[in-house]
Design a protein around this nucleic acid. Structure first.
Lengths: 150, 150, 150, 150
DNA sequence: GTGGTCTAGACCACA
DNA sequence: GTGGTCTAGACCACA
């Protein structure tokens, strides 16, 4: 079952956090069509928020066409947001994990890592969409670049 | 001067976005101790939010001990959050940029990239802090993992 | 319930008076952890100040870690500042009250009494912390000093 | 020369702090008619506030008829606010100092002592103005009261 | 011109 | 009903 965590100091409203975390789980393939979302009661148990707030979040998801609530049965995922490229055994995932390990080994804190990501992802849509990778035939060069100085 | 951008659809309150973007700029070394933050009027000019909202954000930063406002003079950065490891010419930054290029070339969207990051950074603090990388003596192997079939 | 009183001629801003009076009540044990502060509306009722001003005061207290506001529920005291030594039936309290009576009987005004206190408390931290009272074995002498010719 | 100290977090404006501290000094007899107040330049030196602010404070004092500024000579005290009852060698002063020593010896902090004073002085004007002291002929009883429990 | 305080009032999130 | 956010705008303190 998905686990929700509400951060009351994040500046994001509680119901929106539920919405975002649900979508997040769908993107990662943790929630796929047919899966049932936790009941309001269950969410209340994990987050200490009011059931009305959970309902509001689920209504929002339903409105976006991502889930469907069936009377007496629960709320179910109806669409898939997952992409094979970001699944548990994907190379992209492995690559990012690798990078995070380097950052961690370099003693960089989580907040700084997040700041760096946020900064760079801001220009994401401007990156080339087709693979103009420097030298795919010679990964070593790429490595050098990555480990030395760019 | 720092530039703020308010995304009214992000679910994050406006004043909190100012707070986060300011800290972000401090982490990236764009704002260092002694620098003056934009005046409330200037922020109003760039973002079309109310001066009171700017003031609220700056006050929050002041409460956190990051800035100090001096009546009639402006609001000034008092602490440094920047780390050399994440600066503009750092290897970490280059590495992450490289990874983002791969993701983009693979046709993965910005939201999915962000979902992946959010997911993995959740376990960041559990990663080993000292470099137990598979084969530190042979960086090529590491590269393979990172680049193959992406 | 705590009662706030705003003195508009004191030179202290309204929100700060709320902050100080709340801390004051906490120190005197009139507000203890778990207690709910008056709602913004109630404070507006007793003081004729704007709800935003009350909110500002409560937020300041929250920043100092003394209270916690729960949306839809109210604002609650989370820490204790009370000390048994200054409670309603303490000897210290009785002693000070006795001194104030003497001052009043001598025809000294409230402003002068306050000036005297402010002046002497300025050196409070320099007073000996252990009891080197002139003649602890003979309290009568001490009494003389305190009462004679007043 | 009087020493001013500005507390920027007290909620009292700077010029008002100058006014209050000046009156305070006058009440305690530290400033008597004929004394010259520090020049704006001197105050700027001790407090790091703007000379305009000092002028504003002095103007306020002049408006209240307490001081008088003479062109090219300085600002001079014209009235006395001091009372013999609160002078340096008064019994009242000694009594309060004695009480403060007891509080300090009991381990009570400055903030708590101030809270207690503020609390009790609030009812000062309601205290009896003529001397109905319990038993001036037998100070011992009073002492007991003060030291034991009341 | 710069920040600080306060008011009045709208609208939302939450219990 | 309770607190949170935001706007619009007035007025003040300060440099």
């Amino acid at each position: 079952m998905v686990r929700y965590r509400i951060d009351r100091h994040s500046g994001v409203t509680a119901y929106m956090q539920i919405v975002q975390q649900t979508k997040q789980a769908m993107r990662l393939g943790l929630l796929v069509p047919g899966d049932r979302l936790p009941t309001a009661r269950e969410v209340v148990g994990m987050t200490a928020i009011n059931p009305n707030t959970v309902h509001k979040a689920y209504r929002e998801l339903e409105h976006e066409g991502l889930v469907e609530s069936r009377r007496g049965a629960g709320t179910f995922v109806t669409r898939s947001l997952s992409r094979p490229e970001t699944s548990g055994d994907s190379a992209l995932r492995a690559g990012l994990l690798q990078w995070l390990r380097q950052a961690r080994a370099a003693g960089v804190g989580r907040d700084d890592v997040t700041a760096l990501f946020t900064d760079l992802v801001g220009g994401y849509d401007a990156l080339p969409q087709e693979a103009p990778q420097p030298a795919p035939a010679d990964p070593h060069a790429t490595c050098q670049t990555e480990i030395e100085e760019t």
